[in-house]
Design a protein around this nucleic acid. Structure first.
Length: 191
DNA sequence: CCCTGATTCGC
DNA sequence: GCGAATCAGG
């Protein structure tokens, strides 16, 4: 892949938005984050690195509007999540919405408002992932392992997903998908 | 271990 | 110019 104008523009845009190099690379496709970083540097879009060096770099842009107001974008990953509706993984084995209300043997779920609609895609994904889950035990849980419980805690066949978590989240990507939902739009997922 | 950007240097 | 490898940090 080459750096076409469009790709460079997208790069600039995303970088300006504080997106990480890996995210940009992922979006662009065909390039690694290294490529993105390299390009960023060549474009002179370098960030103010706080590597202890004197950041006496004053950026003087004659730009009318500089939409950059991050105090210290050390971890720009933390974007303000839109309102989310956490769905506690009460039911160890996510079942299809055949029977709506399921009372798990373990802990009683807090009164679920009603709608428990999870996108079929997400559910399907979970089912697939479940096969590949590491099936780790409670002891093996770390900060980076998906803590989604599978099975009945009261029985032998109980484990945790254990796949790499999505950064910042307690679950892997698939399980994040069913645990967190955008407030208003359960419909349409990008990608 | 996961991630981040920064830099180098052969291509 | 490009980007993998490496470096330095969280």
């Amino acid at each position: 892949m080459s750096w076409t104008d469009e790709r460079v523009e997208l790069l600039k845009k995303m970088w300006g938005e504080g997106q990480s190099a890996s995210q940009i690379a992922k979006e662009l496709g065909g390039v690694t984050r290294n490529a993105v970083i390299g390009k960023v540097h060549r474009l002179g879009l370098s960030n103010r690195a706080g590597s202890g060096a004197s950041p006496a770099k004053a950026e003087a842009k004659a730009k009318p509007a500089a939409p950059k107001a991050e105090a210290k974008p050390k971890q720009p990953q933390l974007k303000t999540e839109p309102a989310i509706k956490p769905v506690p993984p009460g039911q160890a084995k996510p079942n299809l919405p055949a029977r709506k209300q399921i009372i798990p043997a373990g802990q009683p779920l807090p009164p679920q408002p009603s709608a428990n609609e999870i996108s079929p895609e997400a559910l399907a994904k979970v089912n697939e992932v479940e096969k590949k889950s590491k099936k780790i035990g409670l002891m093996e849980l770390t900060e980076r392992t998906c803590k989604w419980p599978v099975g009945d805690p009261a029985t032998e066949n109980f484990w945790f997903c254990g796949l790499p978590v999505q950064q910042g989240k307690p679950y892997c990507e698939a399980h994040v998908g069913v645990a967190f939902q955008p407030m208003s739009s359960r419909r349409d997922r990008r990608r």
